[in-house]
Design a protein around this nucleic acid. Sequence first.
DNA 1: GAGTGGTCTAGACCACTAG
DNA 2: TAGTGGTCTAGACCACTCC
Lengths: 237, 237
Amino acid sequence: MAAKPKYLTIANQLEQDILIHKYQKQLPHLDQLALIYQTSKVTIVKALSFLQYKGIIKTVRGHGTIILTATEIELAKKDNANEHVGFTERIKNSEFLTSNIISFDLREPTEKEAAFLKIGKSEQVYDIIRQRLLNDFPVRLEYTIMPVKVIPGITKAVLEKSIYGYIENTLQLKVGRANRTFRADKSDAYDQLYLKCAKTDPVFEVEQVCFLSSGLPFEYSQTRNRYDQGELTLNQV
Amino acid sequence: MAAKPKYLTIANQLEQDILIHKYQKQLPHLDQLALIYQTSKVTIVKALSFLQYKGIIKTVRGHGTIILTATEIELAKKDNANEHVGFTERIKNSEFLTSNIISFDLREPTEKEAAFLKIGKSEQVYDIIRQRLLNDFPVRLEYTIMPVKVIPGITKAVLEKSIYGYIENTLQLKVGRANRTFRADKSDAYDQLYLKCAKTDPVFEVEQVCFLSSGLPFEYSQTRNRYDQGELTLNQV
DNA sequence: GAGTGGTCTAGACCACTAG
DNA sequence: TAGTGGTCTAGACCACTCC
């Protein structure tokens, strides 16, 4: 018995069929698909709504289910919004991402940080600055603030590995939602030093607040990306 | 009879109830909600999955439906990814957005443009450069390329009003998906001139390809935002 | 094991598109 | 008006969490 729900199995099968051009511009009718997959209409609808979400098809009420053009499907796959989730820790395929800890302190939060993390002014936070290198070339500078109360026991050893791994495996906490803001900014002296960028080079900044699945904020961070090493692509309706 | 499907009506009602703290940390069980709203369980599930998508609740199989913290809900509402859809034309509440046409020409596309727009090298395109001002202050510089064949009849009068309005109302075409890439870049001489920014100021660039609902690409554009006037916020899981 | 969310069915009916 | 996608029901059963 497949662990996957039937509608996902059907969605994946349909996706394959679309990719090999088994269907041309349109899929068969819902009833026909229900017959083909020996299932009910509602299940087919669910499968199709998943494919629509993925940017592969488009349903038009009263008309039919249209397969998007190859160009649209191709671009939809460039969407990397989810790769920025846990951006701090994500390692891309076979690339060599390393950390260089620039500083690691304990202190009280600023007013802004306390507000973002919903903590009192006297509750201590870790103040972590890390340089991230991709194949030995600096790509990001990360300023991370975390409340000690929420994420206890961070050490240099943890920072050198993965904070997220520590949170999920050692502390057995689950990471939930995140809120990220992307913007351009001027580079400052630290950027120039640690990103090896010119004085006139901008940086691509990602400011984020991350929550545990319990709803507790556990990280406020600012990531300064070399402007030639970070961009975000979205596919939208 | 409400034009809205029942599950949306229920979702909106539940959202209101959550906002006025009618429920504390958790919603009633599915069966209970089905009873309350005199509907079937599946409809309730659909309503909840919509609220989950909106970032208001979180369903946990085997446990219940949890209301996210006020902080999370608040941040979820800052997501402005969809405001960047039709960014070129969207006018914010009661703000005064105007256009200043810097140039408007017809020419053949570059190789890159032809590739993005899926047209031949000899098919003419409009080449439009517009400065956008918010309350008389320059905020964006837009470079827009459109194939004449796809969007015929563009004039300066159209540009001064709204290209999207012309496409949808006059040409009766429907706008479909868009693919956008956000990045930081150095400002160039034009940015400095038309965005009134300093030589060292960066710009926040949005590069996009837009499609008609038919799947035909109709616009390739690069929008250069003053770095203090444009940012993108996403809320993710 | 009790409780709760998720999936699935078969069929009715609604809403929209297009000729 | 015919064809097609969307919603809805009532109830069965599955999958997961927590005690």
